[in-house]
Design a protein around this nucleic acid. Structure first.
Lengths: 126, 126
DNA sequence: GTAGCGGCTGGAGTGCACTCCAGCTCAAGC
DNA sequence: GCTTGAGCTGGAGTGCACTCCAGCCGCTAC
């Protein structure tokens, strides 16, 4: 797969793909005869997972660390599991936070609705 | 309340409090005889809400816009409600995303657990 | 009365995560 | 055979959200 196709299918830009390779988030893919990157299909799954870690607030340094562990294969299963367990706790905490904020926004929306209704009545009073 | 106290109680740094004032997130508080900021208690509630918006991914520009509307008082009830409704949708979408990622991490953790057990058995086989 | 601390200002600096650029090579289509 | 376009590299630039700094003032405690 050419880099432009990976970009189109993953949602990352071509520049970001090359950047991710530089910092060790994506394995350097084999090159074709002309020296161009030729990605395996699986890279899309990996990018999808990276995106999820990203979207849930995992820092670049930690994603790089996870990618490095992944490169070590079997020897890092336990370590990778520990990282995911820790991150899962972070995600759970964020879920609680979001839920709380959602509830607060619901209350505020309701409050504004009331205040709008009252303001409308005051106008009618005049 | 002095700026140091607001910082201690809000969790924001003194520099961030002054920065927020500069960009219009926090109203300029009255000054004491010596020209030092003297914040009202309510600023803590407001900062708490700003924090929630921040933690749920609202951009600075939008928080500034909300703060500006707030300064207009009654005239902006409807607009503020609309902003919150829109942001609530964002929060709900993020909740779904987090839930999905949490489930994926659960599956991966379980997978690594299995792989670790298998690796241990292989060692025992030898 | 002076040392030290907390606060003040405007502006410069930082860290993160990209994003863009100049100048190059290569392959394909007209 | 030459233009066009995709891809390449190393390095510079960007935008966001702070964070730090120099140099100043004024209160409090010794």
């Amino acid at each position: 797969m050419k880099i432009s196709e990976v970009a189109a299918r993953s949602g990352l830009s071509i520049d970001t793909l090359r950047f991710y390779e530089r910092i060790g988030l994506i394995d350097p893919p084999p090159r074709d005869a002309a020296g161009r990157r030729d990605y395996p299909e699986e890279v899309l799954t990996w990018i999808g997972f990276l995106d999820k870690l990203n979207a849930t607030g995992m820092k670049q340094a930690d994603r790089i660390r996870y990618a490095a562990l992944r490169r070590q294969g079997e020897a890092s299963y336990a370590e990778r599991r520990r990282m995911l367990e820790l991150h899962r706790d972070v995600v759970i905490a964020r879920q609680a936070e979001l839920e709380e904020t959602r509830a607060l926004m619901d209350r505020k929306v309701e409050m504004y609705r009331q205040l709008e209704a009252e303001a409308a009545m005051e106008v009618a009073d005049v």
